[in-house]
């Protein structure tokens, strides 16, 4: 029993080390003057500053895209989740399944599909909204499911019926009852959307243009062509953005689950 437990702990710790060690290396490399010579060469923020001057455009583009993606997925996802939750059944499941297809099909295939259909529309192809479409496609299922899960957990039907008996029409019921009670799901879904959008690479790499590089595209760029310290510093900047988001997302998701157990 004891030995079994010790083995389990060892394996868990090894897995943690496997995941954590390279992230620490990258953080250190990003603030080390010369990675070859090690930490003894001194700590510096000059690589981070260089990253900022080289890639701040990519960083702001990613933040802008993520926020736009949040707005679009909320506007599309919340009403749709409501409509699907109101009529649970085969039809709703088929719709949910179809919308979730981008989770099952590799991003590369989706990007090729988008490129083949819209690649020749130059105005659209070269616009940031083309990348946004890809991000919405990929993140929408998360918003839809997060809101659907909350709406399925509350007694939506009787809440709506009671609002109706008090004189509220469909639109008022949606605004006064459905949306406020779906908020934990919207929050969890929204944080997931932003986190995934900022980190999205598979679709974006195919959809981007030389003038529209998102943060992960810039990362790939720096890994291929910059010295290790700059690549690491850029990765460090990415961690600083993504880790708090990831933690907030996990907090919001478990909160939404707890609230409606």
């Amino acid at each position: 029993m004891r030995i079994a437990k010790a083995l389990q702990l060892t394996l868990t710790l090894l897995a943690c080390a496997f995941l954590l060690v390279p992230t620490i290396q990258s953080v250190l490399a990003g603030v080390t003057a010369n990675y070859f010579r090690g930490l003894s060469s001194g700590l510096t923020l000059k690589w981070v500053a260089e990253v900022w001057s080289l890639y701040s455009g990519s960083i702001f583009l990613s933040i802008g895209l993520a926020l736009a993606c949040l707005v679009v997925t909320t506007l599309i996802g919340v009403p749709a989740a409501y409509a699907l939750a109101r009529r649970p059944g085969r039809g709703s499941r088929v719709i949910e399944e179809f919308v979730s297809l981008p989770l099952a099909i590799p991003g590369l295939a989706l990007a090729l599909a988008l490129l083949q259909l819209y690649g020749s529309l130059q105005g659209f192809r070269a616009h940031w909204s083309f990348i946004l479409v890809g991000h919405v496609l990929y993140t929408l299922p998360f918003m839809l499911r997060a809101v659907l899960a909350v709406l399925a957990a509350i007694d939506l039907r009787s809440l709506e019926e009671s609002a109706a008996t008090l004189g509220a029409g469909p639109w008022r019921r949606f605004i006064d009852v459905v949306v406020p009670n779906a908020l934990p799901g919207v929050l969890a879904g929204g944080l997931t959307v932003v986190t995934l959008s900022i980190g999205e690479f598979n679709l974006t790499w195919m959809l981007h243009t030389p003038f529209l590089k998102t943060l992960p595209v810039g990362l790939a760029d720096s890994y291929a062509s910059m010295r290790l310290e700059i690549a690491s510093a850029y990765t460090l900047v990415f961690f600083v953005m993504i880790v708090p988001l990831l933690m907030a997302m996990q907090w919001a998701s478990s909160r939404a689950q707890r609230m409606f157990r």
Partner: peptide
């Protein structure tokens, strides 16, 4: 730590 890489894009994992 074990859930950290959830939000890492594939390129970062490669790095």
């Amino acid at each position: 730590v074990l859930t950290l890489p959830l939000a890492f894009p594939g390129v970062v994992v490669g790095f």
